[in-house]
């Protein structure tokens, strides 16, 4: 009953929710969706519980076929996709709305556009075993359902419930495309490990997002950031968005599946308001960093939350 066949898994598709809390002391990172806004909007469109597990994909998404039952789906992000009805009719998909799919319909998530991550959700949710209260897959530690692995070709997705033909929904307001390449950061806890030149390099030069970027971290390339002290600190807890600089002088931004403890000095940390946007930045993009204070960071985060709430409030029946 209500089975979806994964005909093509895509490049990096995995089950994600908001992650696991309060387990970092035994080495388990929160993890979960990289782009919280798009994750929450996807569930909102489907009128799911806000933490319902869904499929996160990077670049190319999955191609799936409804082999048993009917379902309703939604895709969020900046994503190009087609729905191929069993009759052969191809519908060009639109993000931020739901679609009713019948048995034998196919959904082909072709690619993300000017971004890395997109989200595919099902009304009522996917039937997944929770581990430590979450269905988030951490493939590096093999944590979570599906044996802690990413989606593979020929996997079967079981849905929690069958959906009968009903209204489709759309967000009348959608997130604005953010093309800003200046990322706001707060001062890091080990600023004194860097020379004045090192700090100037970090705040005034541009850094390129390298190909060595995944759910764990984003490696940047650019002018060497000069350290004054030993490049090792006493290992301490990490928070996502931390920007650490190892001896090479090339910064690494730790993303959602970061290691829980780290021993490199942190020059800065991404302001929460800019984290989703940063994580969506494509390799090859040139970024600059701008320091803001705690008060400014709090205001910008409140604004982000308010904007998301306004977007969710614009949900309407089609």
């Amino acid at each position: 009953m209500n089975t979806i066949l994964v005909e093509r898994a895509g490049i990096s598709s995995s089950y994600q929710d908001m992650g696991r809390l309060n387990l970092q002391y035994i080495g388990i990172v929160q993890g979960g969706c990289i782009d919280e806004d798009n994750f929450l909007l996807c569930n909102a469109i489907l009128q799911n519980n806000c933490n319902e597990g869904l499929i996160e994909f990077a670049y190319q998404g999955p191609k799936i076929k409804v082999v048993d039952g009917n379902c309703k789906i939604a895709i969020t992000g900046d994503v190009i996709f087609n729905i191929i009805k069993s009759s052969g009719t191809v519908i060009k998909g639109e993000c931020y709305r739901s679609y009713y799919l019948n048995q034998n319909d196919t959904l082909d998530v072709l690619t993300t556009s000017n971004s890395v991550y997109g989200y595919l959700g099902f009304e009522g949710g996917i039937d997944l075993q929770k581990y430590f209260g979450s269905v988030a897959v951490n493939s590096r530690s093999n944590l979570g359902p599906n044996n802690g692995k990413k989606l593979s070709n020929n996997d079967k997705i079981q849905l929690k419930k069958n959906i009968y033909a009903s209204n489709e929904y759309i967000l009348r307001r959608i997130p604005e495309k953010n093309r800003n390449t200046t990322i706001r950061v707060l001062e890091g806890p080990q600023e004194e490990y860097f020379s004045n030149n090192g700090l100037t390099t970090f705040y005034e030069k541009s850094f390129l997002v390298s190909n060595l970027t995944d759910r764990m971290g984003m490696r940047l390339e650019g002018s060497k950031i000069d350290l004054v002290k030993s490049p090792n600190i006493k290992s301490e807890g990490i928070i996502k968005g931390s920007i650490q600089v190892p001896a090479s002088g090339q910064p690494i931004i730790l993303l959602s599946d970061h290691q829980t403890i780290g021993g490199y000095p942190k020059i800065a940390i991404i302001a929460s308001a800019d984290y989703d946007h940063l994580a969506q930045t494509l390799p090859g993009t040139s970024l600059k960093f701008k320091k803001i204070n705690l008060r400014e960071a709090n205001i910008s985060y409140q604004l982000k939350i308010k904007t998301r709430k306004n977007i969710i409030a614009s949900l309407q029946k089609i």
């Binding site: 809390l21 002391y25 929160q30 006493k234 301490e236 807890g237 990490i238 928070i239 705690l294 985060y301």
Partner: peptide, 23 residues
């Protein structure tokens, strides 16, 4: 609103949810 609390050699680092609690 506490997301994580990580003890290390000489520090306790607390990650909180700004929507729920302030620094």
């Amino acid at each position: 609103g506490i997301k994580n609390c990580t003890p290390s050699y000489n520090k306790l680092i607390i990650n909180f949810n700004l929507e729920v609690i302030s620094f």
